[in-house]
Design a protein around this nucleic acid. Structure first.
Lengths: 217, 217
DNA sequence: CGGTTAATTGAACGCATTCAACACGAGTGG
DNA sequence: CCACTCGTGTTGAATGCGTTCAATTAACCG
């Protein structure tokens, strides 16, 4: 079983919050292989999850079969914070990954620890912020703007000058509310305009940051 | 100065949470007239807000001048919970309204009150839930589905069989990532199919719940 | 090497947009 | 009462962009 992407992924080094500590102490680390389901849509929201390595995506299927990708989570990110008793989105392993899992009731038992509560609130706030950014992206009219916005966000996740896309074009399309063909065409177009460069299908660098910023603004 | 909509709006009766109590005790009630700005995009996020009466919308302007409507808030709803030090969206009075305002530092000073923290977390969770629903709406392909989804959500806010739309077609369009013309045409079409009925431009009832549910699913 | 999935490219279509004109209601003043 | 205005909403016709369907190419892995 060889991994498509390295498991150790020292991206955003989150500080050792009480929540991280609680997960380390009381959480169980589980492994999922590519495309395995971590939890299902409409499952009880009874656990809290943290990505140790790999990448996770959340998805929701509409009645007509269309799929909406909610978000992508990288090492250090918390997910499963969705409100309500049931998950609105399913969570799947985009790549093979390690996930720390903690029962919510365990968090609640630890409560009274105001710092822990605050850590969860902060994580929820971050999640909200990302959803707002997603709304902004989806609200954009043009495919160029959507794709550019997505690539900019992906590039920002990486400190390195070259960014990787662990997800397929289909994932990107379902995230942006477009089709694979449109995503592909748009990327090709941005390349031909020397705005971005794709040395391979899943790796890219931004050549004209100004143009991209303008599109993603 | 006559109001377009009644100020007393006993819709969702939120329970008297610690947060509500704190707002009642320490909050200041302010009045805004239609289209007045409650806070600006990129303002410091230093207050917490609660709608007493009237309706509020949050908006964000892109660099190209396009406007994205983030959400609509009714009596009892909390807003201004956005993460980060700055507001991602501006808040404006959609109708004349009364707003209770509470300094965040005041909330923080009251903290240690675990119940209060939990109330804020719950409000943030609800906000997140609404953003997720918004992402789902925006991700939909067709204008029919978007408009139907919006009308369903608006109808659910009202217990009454007849629902009101305090916002303009432009607001709806900017919320759904469409144009006013498309919103108008779609509504006309739904009417001609006897799926919804608009006795006036701002009031409607759903005639074929099954069809609407199918579209909004 | 095949075999399979992912990604790109091409051509025709369809839906939302754009630009423009018109309708409607509320408020104002003759 | 009518005429006028302004904001809001509806309707029409032509355009354009993303989609759809289809075929081809590229990448990955046995």
């Amino acid at each position: 079983m060889s991994l498509a992407y390295p498991l150790d992924d020292p991206r955003t080094e989150h500080p050792a919050s009480p929540l991280t500590q609680a997960l380390d102490r009381m959480g169980v680390t589980m492994r999922f292989r590519r495309d395995a389901e971590i939890y299902a849509q409409d499952d009880e929201a009874e656990f809290l999850y943290r990505v140790v390595s790999g990448v996770v995506r959340t998805t929701r299927f509409a009645a007509d079969g269309r799929r909406q990708v909610g978000d992508f989570y990288y090492a250090g990110d918390l997910f499963g914070l969705e409100p309500g008793p049931e998950h609105q989105f399913a969570a799947e392993a985009l790549t093979d990954c390690e996930i720390q899992v903690l029962r919510r009731t365990a968090v609640r038992a630890l409560s009274g620890d105001a710092e822990l509560d605050r850590a969860i609130l902060e994580a929820t706030r971050r999640q909200l912020e990302r959803m707002q950014a997603h709304v902004l992206l989806l609200g954009r009219k043009g495919a160029r703007e959507k794709v550019a916005g997505f690539l900019m966000a992906m590039a920002q996740r990486r400190a390195a000058s070259i960014a990787e896309l662990p997800m397929t074009r289909q994932d990107i399309a379902d995230y942006l509310g477009l089709t694979i063909e449109t995503v592909s065409r748009t990327i090709t177009q941005l390349q031909s305009e020397a705005v971005v460069e794709f040395p391979s299908q899943r790796r890219f660098t931004i050549k004209r940051f100004d143009v991209m910023e303008e599109l993603a603004a």
